[in-house]
Design a protein around this nucleic acid. Structure first.
Length: 353
DNA sequence: TACGCGTGGGC
DNA sequence: TGCCCAAGCGT
């Protein structure tokens, strides 16, 4: 009983704090499940500062789920360009079509129906169900893991099966059934603004006298996460065709990183190569055969593009040639295609004359 | 189940 | 600098 009263106090404190401290974010002006869904997908593993502009772009270009469903995947990816984790955009578009074609355009209204949408997992389904439909399903995101791990002094790994269940159960016990959406947003906002990963504001935290980690000086050690990821090194050699009349060649990636995004023809190697090695490369030879070419390396220093799980060391080779057998596009049209940041950065620096 | 999947910011 | 982290999900 004592534990229950304490928990009630925490939940209500979080809500009271939230009501007087919440940020004025654009998706907090609506309860339209389509827009809440949009915001939640955009904010997956993404900071508010980075995602906000994309939320505006998407709600302006696609005000309703019908507009999104009627777009092409390429248009959606182009709008998503620069935000990363592009499967979010592909799944968003897929699910929009599903809602329009199979649900008569009506957004699903329960957790169990919402989670059936591709790209929507436990967190996102809980967020939408609680915010838009008052269903008492607790969200557990990075913020919630942190607040709960510290406050209750829980050292179970947050990325273990056991930890995922444990934290979900605790959050579910804490949720305020009468205002689940407000509680969910309150605990997340608290994690983002007070109980931060670095330099949390413990001194003035209203929960510090009952926070286990604070009392035991364990704030820096919680939440606990298992192991680290290994960074793989990859070596990309992009072949930038430079042909008469400002013509070039691009291709669509079919799998892995940047799936369905566009790039220049790629020769991936197991290590950095110089021009001699490029010229004797089999794929390079297939591209140009015995044609007369002029090859220039755009970047003298390797461009390192860092992703979560891999570092891509890149060279852009500009190859002048009169013609080719591949499909070509005008250089001026290249901006229409969705491209990864690595290619976008090149495009903003390189001048095709 | 463990791993693949982007980009940017903070220290 | 290198590492961690950010309103996670799919397979």
């Amino acid at each position: 009983m004592h534990f229950y009263i304490i928990n009630m106090k925490i939940s209500n404190l979080l809500i009271q704090w939230y009501l007087s401290n919440k940020r004025n974010l654009p998706w907090r002006k609506t309860l339209d499940p389509y827009k809440i869904w949009l915001s939640e997908i955009i904010l997956q593993q993404t900071r508010v500062d980075q995602g906000t502009a994309y939320y505006h772009k998407f709600t302006e270009n696609f005000p309703t789920v019908f507009d999104l469903a009627n777009a092409t995947e390429e248009e959606v990816l182009k709008l998503w360009q620069g935000l990363g984790y592009y499967s979010r955009a592909r799944n968003l578009h897929f699910s929009a079509k599903y809602i329009v074609n199979n649900l008569n355009g009506e957004f699903p209204s329960t957790y169990s129906e919402i989670i059936k949408l591709k790209g929507v997992g436990d967190y996102t389904a809980s967020a939408i169900a609680s915010i838009c439909f008052n269903e008492a399903t607790a969200v557990v995101d990075g913020n919630v893991y942190r607040v709960l791990a510290r406050y209750f002094g829980i050292s179970t790994a947050i990325n273990s099966t056991k930890g995922i269940k444990e934290f979900k159960n605790i959050a579910q016990e804490l949720i305020v059934a009468e205002q689940p959406g407000t509680f969910n947003q309150a605990i997340m906002e608290y994690g983002a603004r007070v109980c931060k990963p670095q330099n949390p504001i413990c001194d003035t935290c209203e929960l510090n006298n009952s926070c286990v980690a604070f009392g035991k000086n364990e704030i820096q050690n919680l939440p606990f996460k298992e192991k680290k990821i290994k960074i793989k090194k990859r070596y990309f050699n992009y072949i930038v065709f430079k042909m008469p009349n400002k013509i070039t060649v691009i291709e669509k990636r079919i799998s892995g990183i940047w799936q369905n995004m566009y790039q220049f023809p790629l020769i991936e190697t197991s290590k950095e190569i110089d021009i001699e090695e490029l010229l004797s490369n089999k794929k390079f030879d297939e591209l140009f055969q015995q044609k007369k070419i002029n090859v220039k390396l755009f970047n003298n220093d390797l461009i390192v593009h860092k992703l979560s799980h891999q570092h891509i060391y890149t060279k852009f080779w500009v190859v002048e040639v009169d013609n080719c057998e591949l499909d070509t596009i005008k250089w001026s049209e290249i901006g229409k295609y969705p491209v990864p940041k690595l290619v976008d950065n090149f495009l903003s620096e390189y001048k095709f004359n």
